[in-house]
Amino acid sequence: MEGLERILREHDFLKDLSLEQARFLVSCARNLHYATGDFLLHEGTDATAFYLLRRGRVALEIHVPGRGTVEMESLGPGDVLGLSWFIPPYREQLDARAVEPVVAIAFDCQCLRDKLDADHDLGYALARRLFEHAYHRLERVRLQRLDLYGVQ
């Protein structure tokens, strides 16, 4: 457990978390490995996991009838994967597929929500980080949407 606490506090998303807070969260977390091609999330399923990516890259994909699978964005070490667990009705909006061998900390989302409800200081700290992460992701999506490299 001590190793997992250290890993949690070293990840970009949870950097500067106190040792006490890390200890509080660690019982919800597992260190998992995924092979290339494994799915970490499936669109339409219950959002049961929240990931902190440590190694490897994950493609966020959506299947478009007539076009096939379209990769919307990719995430790598230091990123978080899965935001739907925080927002009702807690259902995944995209597929997430490992395009390289992936190592990630996976949180059980019900466990995590219960912890954040029990400790509002921690809940606020994590909600703020999630908002910051979502803000930067939104910024990236805006840039993609601009189709910058198309003919002006």
Partner: peptide, 13 residues
């Protein structure tokens, strides 16, 4: 910015 499933590199800005 955009890719199909055969692209193995990152997708984003």
């Amino acid at each position: 910015d955009h890719a199909g499933a055969d692209w193995l590199g990152p997708v984003g800005a």
